[in-house]
Design a protein around this nucleic acid. Structure first.
Length: 820
RNA sequence: GCGCGGGUGGCGGAAUUGGCAUACGCGCUAGCUUGAGGAGCUAGUUCCGCAAGGAUUGCGGGUUCAAAUCCCGCCCCGCGCACCA
C-alpha cells in the first residue's frame, strides 16, 4: 500500500484548528497551576532564518509539553520594535521606520504561524506603539522621581564622518562599524539610570537564580566586577593636598615607586600649574583624550606617559615618588590615580621599563629568588614579603590583612570595595525610540512630564539626516512646549531611550497588555510572575538580563511588584551556524525556512531543528539532515495509517514481542519525560521515539502478524511523546487512531515502573578489562552462580586458562571482570 | 592575559552515578523492489587485518579490577571580558 504524507493539508488544517479552539489562550484570572513560558521578544528584522527558528521552536515544544502536563500556560509574543536598523534603513532607503517595522512584523508573524509555533496573540505587545512606550516613559518617570534617573556629562563614541554618536557595539577595533573611520570621543550631556545603587543586590541575588545556567551567572558576576581592596592616601609634596588611590594589592605598597594619574584626572590642571613644561603636559593629555576610549582600552595599545613634575609620598616607605600621567589609567574605575608597583604588576612593569623607573622587589618567589635587573615580567604570584620592614617574612596574603589593619589604625588608608559596573547610559541621539519625557524650562530647570500627559508622542514627520543630534531637534511642534510647573515656554528633551529600556519590563506588560490605565496590573503580575521559563539567546546574558533584574528590583522597592527577580528558570539556546559561521546576509549563508517548509513541511523543519544537537550548544545546519527528519515523519505516518487499516486482534494473547514492545513503550515514556525535565534534551528524546518506531517496524515486518493491543498502545504513546516537537502530524494521527479531542488536551503519560523490569539481564564478562563474552542471566543471579557460569564459558576459558585467578569483580546486573 | 565551554567514526551527535565506546540520524556500500520518486525495503558501515586478533574518545602521564568520564601536564578550537590597579 502506498501512503503519501500530505503535510501541507495537515499543517494548514491544524493551525487553523488551534487558533479556533484558542489552544494558547491563557485565562489570566485563573492563576492555579500557572506556567509563564517566555521567549525573548525579537527585533522585527526583514525575515527569519532557521537559526532564529530554534528559539521559537524550543519555546513552543516546552509550552505544548506543559499544556499536556495540565498547566495553565501563558506563552505570549511581542516585538522589540524600536532600534537602529530601522532608522538606518530610513536614512538609506527613505522608508519610514514605522512602515518598515510594521511590515517586518507582518512577515515574521506569518513565518511564526507557518512554523506552527503558538502564542496567545491577544496579549501581543509592540514597544514602538504609543500604548506601550507610554509606559516605558512612565517607568522613566518613576526612576526620575526616585532619583535613579539623572543627567551628566559623559564621553561618548563619536564618528566624525557619519557625524553621529555610536554605541559601543557599533565600534569595531576603534573604528566606525559602517564607514571605518577612526572613532573619537565627545563630551555630551547624557541621561543615566543609577544601576550602581543596586550593585550589591544584583550581585548577591545571583545566588538566588538556582535555575540559571552557570555561565550566565558567571558573566553577570564578572560584569559587576566586585573587588575588595584598600584606598590609600598619598600626601602631595609641596602643599597640604593628598591623592587617594585604590589597590587590591596592598601587600605590594612598599614596592610602589611611582604614581600614575589618568589624563582625565580632574585636579590635573591645578597640580601642574607651576610646572615648567606644563604646556607639553597639556598637549600630551589632549592628544591621549582625543584618541578615544575604545583604542585606549585595548590591552595591546602601547603604554605612554609623561612626568607631571610633582611628587607624592609613599605613606609606608615615606619616600618621595614621582607622579606620572599615562594612557593606561582609567578615570572611570577606582579614583583615577594608581599606585604603581613595577615588580608586581605587569602594566606598571612595562611602563617602568620604558621610562626607566625604579624597580623594587617586595614579594619574593620562594622557589627562585627574584633579581630586579633580570626580571622580564612582573612577579604577580603569591610569595614572601621582603623589603617591607615589620612585614618581612610574612606570606603576602597574610600581609595584606596586616597592612590594611595597620593603615586603618594609622589613618593612612581604609578598606573598601570597587565595582566595574557603571551607571546605565540610556539616552540616544536617535529618532526611532521612546522620547525621554523631560522638559527644560529656563525658570524651573529640568522638569518631568506630568504622568497624565503621557505618552510624549514620537512625531511621524522628521528628516532622516544624521547630524549628531536626534532628528527630533528639527521638529518644532515637538520641541516647543510649555513648562509643566510654570506654564511658560519650554523645550522638550530630544533624545530617545535606549531600546534596552523597552525590553527591561515587557514581561510585566503581557498579562495585561491592553490596560490603558497602568503599565501593568500589580495583582495579576504578582500571581503570574516570576516567569517560570525564560528562553533566549546567550548574547543577552549580560545587558538585557541585568537591566531587567535592575528594573524589577526598583519596582519591588516601589512596592509595585512583590518579587525582586523576574525570571525563575533561564534557558539559553545555542546558535545555529552554516558553514561554520553565524547566518547573515552579508556572508550569504542564510537558510530560509520558507522553501523547506514548502517542500517538507513545518514538522520536518521543527524535528530537524530539535534533533540537530543539544539545544544549549551551537549546531551546524545541514540540508541533508532535514531529509532524515522528513523520512522519519513519513515512516511514522505510514505506520499509523497501515496499522489502522489493518485492524487488530486485541484479544490475542501477548507473546514475547508484545512484551518487548510494552516494556520499550514504558522505557520510552520514561526517557522522553526525563529528557524534557533534564534541560530540554530534545535530541535524545527524539532518538528514543525513533528507536521505538524502529522496533515496531521490525515486529510488524511479519506480514501475517495481527496488530496487538501492545502495538496500539505503543503507537499511541509514540504520537503523544513526539507531539510537542511535531504538533501537526501528531494532531492528525491522533484523530486517525480514533481520538476526538486535541492531543494537547491529553494528559502527558506517566510510566509504570513495574513494567520496566525484565526477568533476565545481559551481563558482560571482561578478562583484564577487555570484553570477552556476554551472558543472559536471571536478574537475581547470585555472585556464586555468576562465577560458575562465567568461569565455565568457553569464550572466557580461552583467556584465563593456565593463569592464576587474581580477582573477580562483580557489578550486579552489569558486568563481571576477571583479573588473571 | 583572565574567565567559561568544547575536542568521540566520513559528518551531526549518544554514553545521565567510573562499568558493553560510537545509540539515533546523515552519508556511503551491496542487494531487493517499484506504479521511476527528492521513493521504499533488507543487510553492512570506528580503524588496521583474509582471519584470529589488535588498536581507538586532541596529545603525554597517573589513579583504578575497570577511565570519553577522576587527577597532573600540554596542544588546539569556540565564546565572553579585557590596561578594572
Amino acid at each position: 500500500m502506498k501512503v503519501e504524507y500530505p503535510h501541507k493539508d495537515i499543517e494548514k488544517k491544524w493551525q487553523k484548528y488551534w487558533s479556533e479552539i484558542g489552544l494558547f489562550h491563557a485565562d489570566i484570572s485563573e492563576d492555579e497551576n500557572k506556567y509563564y513560558c517566555l521567549m525573548m521578544f525579537p527585533y522585527p528584522s526583514a525575515s527569519l532564518h532557521v537559526g532564529h527558528g530554534r528559539n521559537y521552536i524550543i519555546g513552543d515544544a516546552v509550552a505544548r509539553y506543559k499544556l499536556m502536563q495540565g498547566y495553565n500556560v501563558l506563552t505570549p509574543m511581542g516585538w522589540d520594535a524600536f532600534g537602529l536598523p530601522a532608522e538606518n534603513a530610513a536614512i538609506k532607503g527613505n522608508v519610514h521606520p514605522h512602515v518598515s517595522t510594521e511590515r517586518n512584523i507582518a512577515t515574521m508573524k506569518r513565518q511564526l504561524g507557518q512554523w506552527g509555533v503558538g502564542y496567545d496573540w491577544d496579549k501581543e505587545v509592540n514597544s514602538s506603539r504609543p500604548e506601550y512606550y507610554r509606559w516605558t516613559q512612565w517607568i522613566f518617570l518613576e526612576l526620575f522621581k526616585k532619583g535613579l534617573a539623572y543627567k551628566k556629562k559623559a564621553s561618548v563614541n563619536w564618528c566624525p564622518s557619519c557625524n553621529t554618536v555610536l554605541a559601543n557595539e557599533q565600534v569595531a577595533d576603534g573604528a566606525c562599524e559602517r564607514c571605518d573611520t577612526k572613532v573619537g570621543q565627545k563630551e555630551l550631556e547624557q541621561w543615566f539610570f543609577k544601576i550602581t545603587d543596586y550593585t550589591e543586590r544584583l550581585l548577591k541575588d545571583i545566588d538566588k537564580l538556582e535555575h540559571w545556567p552557570d555561565r550566565v551567572k558567571i558573566m553577570q558576576r564578572n560584569w559587576i566586577g566586585r573587588s575588595e581592596g584598600v584606598e590609600i592616601r598619598f600626601p602631595l609634596v609641596g602643599g597640604d593636598k593628598e591623592l587617594t588611590c585604590f589597590t587590591t594589592r596592598v601587600d605590594t605598597i612598599y614596592g610602589a615607586t611611582y604614581m600614575v594619574l589618568a589624563p582625565e584626572f580632574p585636579l590635573l590642571d591645578e597640580l601642574i600649574k607651576d610646572v615648567e613644561n606644563k604646556e607639553e603636559i597639556k598637549a600630551f593629555v589632549q592628544r591621549i583624550k582625543s584618541e578615544g576610549m575604545v583604542k585606549r582600552a585595548q590591552i595591546d595599545t602601547e603604554k605612554e606617559g609623561i612626568f607631571s613634575g610633582r611628587y607624592v609620598i609613599n605613606p609606608m616607605t615615606k619616600r618621595e615618588i614621582p607622579l606620572w600621567i599615562a594612557n593606561y589609567v582609567l578615570m572611570e574605575y577606582g579614583t583615577g590615580a594608581v599606585m604603581a608597583v613595577p615588580t608586581h604588576d605587569q602594566r606598571d612593569f612595562e611602563f617602568a621599563k620604558k621610562y626607566d623607573l625604579e624597580l623594587r622587589i617586595v614579594i619574593d618567589n620562594p622557589k627562585f629568588p627574584l633579581i630586579a635587573e633580570d626580571m622580564e615580567e612582573a612577579y604577580v604570584a603569591d610569595g614572601v614579603m621582603v623589603n617591607s620592614v615589620q612585614f618581612d617574612g610574612l606570606g603576602n596574603r597574610e600581609a595584606m590583612v596586616k597592612i590594611a589593619e595597620y593603615m586603618e589604625s594609622n589613618n593612612i588608608g581604609r578598606r573598601t570595595v570597587q565595582y566595574k559596573l557603571r551607571d546605565w547610559l540610556i539616552s540616544r541621539q536617535r529618532y526611532w525610540g521612546a522620547p525621554i519625557p523631560i522638559i527644560y524650562c529656563d525658570v524651573c530647570g529640568i522638569q518631568p512630564v506630568s504622568e497624565k500627559d503621557l505618552p510624549v508622542l514620537l512625531p511621524e514627520k522628521v528628516e532622516f539626516k544624521p547630524h549628531g543630534e536626534s532628528p527630533l531637534k528639527d521638529v518644532k511642534s515637538f520641541v516647543e512646549t510649555k513648562c509643566p510647573k510654570c506654564n511658560k515656554k519650554a523645550i522638550r528633551e530630544i533624545d530617545t531611550m535606549d531600546t534596552f529600556v523597552d525590553s527591561s519590563w515587557y514581561y510585566l506588560r503581557y498579562p495585561s497588555s491592553k490596560d490603558d490605565k497602568k503599565a501593568f496590573d500589580t495583582d495579576v503580575v504578582n500571581k503570574w510572575l516570576p516567569v517560570d521559563q525564560y528562553i533566549g539567546g546567550v548574547e543577552h546574558a549580560i545587558l538585557h538580563l541585568l537591566y531587567s533584574r535592575f528594573i524589577t528590583k526598583v519596582l519591588y522597592d516601589l512596592k509595585l511588584v512583590s518579587f525582586d527577580e523576574p525570571f525563575g528558570r533561564l534557558f539559553t539556546q545555542g546558535m545555529i551556524v552554516k558553514d561554520g559561521a553565524k547566518m547573515s546576509k552579508s556572508k550569504g549563508n542564510v537558510v530560509s525556512p520558507d522553501g523547506l517548509i514548502e517542500r517538507y513541511g513545518a514538522d520536518t523543519v521543527r524535528l530537524y531543528t530539535l534533533f540537530i544537537g543539544p539545544p544549549e550548544k551551537d549546531a551546524e545546519w545541514s540540508d541533508r539532515g532535514v531529509e532524515g527528519a522528513y523520512r522519519f515523519l513519513k515512516r511514522l505516518y505510514r505506520l499509523v495509517m497501515e496499522v489502522t487499516a489493518k485492524g487488530g486482534d486485541v484479544s490475542k494473547k501477548e507473546d514475547n514481542a508484545d512484551k518487548d514492545i510494552m516494556r520499550m513503550t514504558q522505557a520510552t515514556i520514561k526517557k522522553v519525560t526525563e529528557d524534557m525535565e533534564r534541560d530540554f534534551h530534545f535530541n535524545t528524546a527524539i532518538s528514543s521515539v525513533m528507536e521505538l518506531l524502529n522496533k515496531l517496524y521490525l515486529v510488524l515486518g511479519d506480514k501475517d502478524r495481527k496488530v496487538s493491543g501492545a502495538v496500539k498502545e505503543a503507537i499511541r504513546a509514540a504520537i503523544i511523546l513526539i507531539s510537542p516537537f511535531v504538533p501537526h502530524i501528531s494532531e492528525e494521527l491522533w484523530r486517525v487512531i480514533g481520538e476526538k479531542d486535541s492531543i494537547f488536551k491529553t494528559k502527558w503519560p506517566s510510566y509504570d515502573k513495574s513494567m520496566l523490569k525484565t526477568d533476565t539481564v545481559t551481563i558482560v564478562a571482561q578478562v583484564n578489562g577487555k570484553v570477552r563474552a556476554r551472558f543472559d542471566v536471571s536478574i537475581d543471579a547470585t555472585e556464586d552462580e555468576l562465577k560458575e557460569i562465567v568461569l565455565n564459558d568457553d569464550g572466557v576459558k580461552k583467556w584465563i586458562e593456565g593463569k592464576p585467578l587474581k580477582k573477580f569483580v562483580v557489578v550486579p546486573n552489569k558486568i563481571v571482570n576477571i583479573v588473571v
